[in-house]
Structures are given as C-alpha cells and as structure tokens.
Design a protein around this nucleic acid. Structure first.
Lengths: 229, 229
DNA sequence: TAGTGGTCTAGACCACTGA
DNA sequence: CAGTGGTCTAGACCACTAC
C-alpha cells in the first residue's frame, strides 16, 4: 500500500493532538519526512500545504514548518441566494419590490462605491418572505458605471440579487455582519417592534477595481447564521 | 517562462468573468488543457482543484469539469482569541472574572452538552476590555466529564478561552451568530443601554463525540465582523 | 549564502461513475 | 466499460529568507 498525502496529514494531526508535536515546535523538513514515511516529497508537500491552509501549521522558507502556537480557527459560511436559502428550508419564497429609483448618489455612498460627485446610482429596496412571513429586507445600491444594463433592468418580479448574478458572473466582495436596532420602517416591513435587535449583513461587491453594488440585508428578529468547523 | 498553475487559474477565471466560459458549460479535460497551455497535467490539475475548492467549478469523474451555475460564494472568518484580537488592534487588553461556579447543569444546557440528569457543570462569566472600554462579555459552561482538570482551574487571571486552548489542542465546533437585545445585566457590563442591539457569537465545541464547552460571546454595541472573499 | 519550501515535469496507475 | 479526475513518483530548478 502506498502512502498517500492523507495518511501523512492524518499522522501529523494525530501527533499534534496527542502532544507528540507541541505547539511552536519545528516539524522536520519535507525531505526528511518523505524518507520517514517512505513517499515522495510532493506527497509530504501536499499534506503540509493543506495543514498550513487550515491554520494548523505555519510554513516559512528556510525557517521550516512549525506547529502554530494557537491554531488559527476559521469558519466558512456559504453566502446563499435568499430564494435558494428559503426554498431549501422547504418554505415558499415570495418577493416584492418596494422602491426602485435612479438618483444622485448620496455622499456616504460615493465614498463606498468610488463614485464621482453628482453621479447617478440605482437604488432598490425589496423584501423576501418565507411562507408569507417577512424574512429579509434588502436595501441595495447599484453602480451603473460598471453595470450599465441596470438602467433597463426590471426588478418587479425577480430580485436584484439574482439579476446581478446573471449579469456579473464574477466578483470580489467585502462582507460585514452587525446587529442593528429596528427603526420604524424596518419594523413595519419585518413585522416586528421598533428597537428589536436585527441581524444585518452588509456586502460590497467589486468587479476588478470597480464597485458594483452595496447591499444591506436585514433579517427578521431571531435570525441565526450557523456553521461548523 | 514556464506556465504556472496560477497562470492557468487566472486564465480560466478570466474566461469565466468575460463570459467566454458560460455557467454550466463544460471545461475541456485536464489532458487537453495541459496541451493547450503547454504545461504538465499536474499543473492544470492544481489550478482546477483550487477553482473547485473555491466553488467556481464543479468536478466529477467521467463527467468532467463544469462552471457552476451559481458560483458557491463563501466567506471565511478567522475565529480569533479575544486577547489576540484586541492586542492586534493596538489596544490594551484587560480581563476580569465575574463569576465562577460549579453547579448542576440546567435543563437547557444538558441537551446542548449531552449531559446526564443531575450532572455538574462549570459556569464561568467574565469580561474582556479593550483600552479600558468593555469589549466582550463571555458566558461559558464547561463539561467536567470531558475536561476533568477544569475543576482545579483558576480563571481569576486568564480567561477560560485561553485555558481551554492549552488543555484541548484540537476540536470541532458549531458556531452561530445572532443579534440580541441587551438585558439589564449585559447592559451594565458592556456599558450600554438595556435594549441596545448586540452582536452575539454562540459556540459549542466538541472533542470527538463529547461536548466540551458552550460559550456565549456578546460584543459591545456597534461591533462589526468583517471579511473579504 | 545555504537551506527550506514552492512549483513544474513526464509518466504512471487507479477509482469512480456517467453514458 | 471507457473516460475523467485523483494521486504518487523521482527528479529538477527556483525563490525566498533566516542565519
């Protein structure tokens, strides 16, 4: 049986878990390990590379590979499309457009989207329901400089979320989660009481160097975002 | 100049971004691409493997590699140790223990930690400050069945967070983020007004099949958790 | 400047799975 | 059952960087 990179990885993890490899300690070089495990260096390399990516070890040229003092823990969240998220839960999805304007970008937005003074932006506000219950309020600004077709888009039947996905297949984003208090408007739309704590996702999306869109997604009270790691 | 896996990856990404490769379309096999790019198949393999891991493409044996219909977006958050997070921001970290009891596990907790009826659990409440300003309130339960040494642990100078890290080098966890309203107690500790919206992280940590600890971390108002992808 | 990881190659065998 | 991805190998060159 040949030694696979998973074998090597599992053995190293086990040594770390058992304390045979202490945090901060130096792990032998790839060449040594390859000989020890009786495999090619590429095999050891793949194992170690994955451990590094998972935050278990830290690699530096010339300095070697060390077990991290405190393993970097990270959680990975999938960023769902609201409709898919709701339908996946078995509920019936409903969408409605609330507002749709083309207007001059306010100051605070110009900075965020790198818009010049006096430039126009498309402002869309809409709601997403699950089984007839308010689920998420969406407040979105779209930059027509980057996505000119937004000026002709119709958001009355499908959400800007999905429209953008079809228009812009690819992008980078900055995501931010916060807790906010419901103002009267949000409370009305989400069917809650002003002052209720709401979970908010704020996302800015970029295509190369141009900011495409800034969106604030505010969920109904009690919303939980969960993951495992 | 030899063709690297990053070159291949970048070119494929570019083709997807420009629409040359439509969502759902089949990407040529590794052998073909290797010939096209003038590199080894292993190079193409690495590029495609990373694209798959990032959720851009979908790979199936025999069926080949396809561009995902809707790219799976996911964000990765690092789960910091509070002290390191605060110190990394340049602020001075301060810790204080508020409560530390051994007590019978309440019903709601027994379910979460898989504890038998009447079993004891260690309950710790503490605070973390940044530059003397309340930063995070920590309310933690620890299962002495899994970590017996917790019964002798001293949390008066260092937080259970860091103590656990040194005791249990390795674990799985379930994380959940929500927004909650400050009650009087939280408001007192965090220096805010009852009713303020607070960002809360709830984490259950498991070692193999045993639940080690359940913790509720509640941040001061205005806390933002940010990442890029 | 020497040692470590980073990557490429060319060839091989194998496992899975869709046609 | 044939084609695709998954992985290993043995050898090579190179880039970075700690010493």
């Amino acid at each position: 049986m040949t030694v696979t990179f998973k074998d090597v990885k599992a053995d190293l993890l086990d040594q770390i878990a058992r304390g045979a490899l202490q945090p901060g300690s130096l792990i032998p070089g790839e060449t040594d390990l390859a000989e020890k495990y009786g495999c090619a260096r590429a095999t050891v390399n793949r194992a170690m590379r994955e451990l590094a990516e998972e935050g278990i070890v830290e690699r530096k040229r010339k300095a070697g590979t060390r077990v991290r003092m405190s393993p970097i823990r990270h959680a990975r969240f999938s960023i769902p499309i609201v409709r898919e998220e709701i339908e996946a839960s078995g509920a019936v999805y409903r969408y409605a457009l609330i507002e749709h304007h083309k207007q001059e970008a306010p100051d605070w937005l110009r900075g965020r989207l790198a818009l010049a003074s006096g430039q126009m932006a498309v402002h869309v506000i809409c709601m997403h329901w699950a089984d007839g219950i308010p689920y998420q309020h969406e407040d979105r600004w779209i930059n027509p400089e980057i996505v000119p077709s937004v000026l002709e888009a119709d958001f009355s039947v499908s959400s800007p979320n999905e429209w953008l996905l079809s228009e812009v297949p690819f992008s980078n984003a900055e995501i931010c989660f916060t807790a906010v208090e419901a103002d009267r408007d949000l409370a009305d739309h989400l069917g809650c009481i002003p002052g209720n704590a709401l979970f908010r996702t704020e996302r800015t999306t970029w295509l190369r160097d141009g900011a495409i869109t800034l969106v604030r997604l505010t969920n109904r009270p009690g919303h939980r975002m969960t993951t495992r790691y």
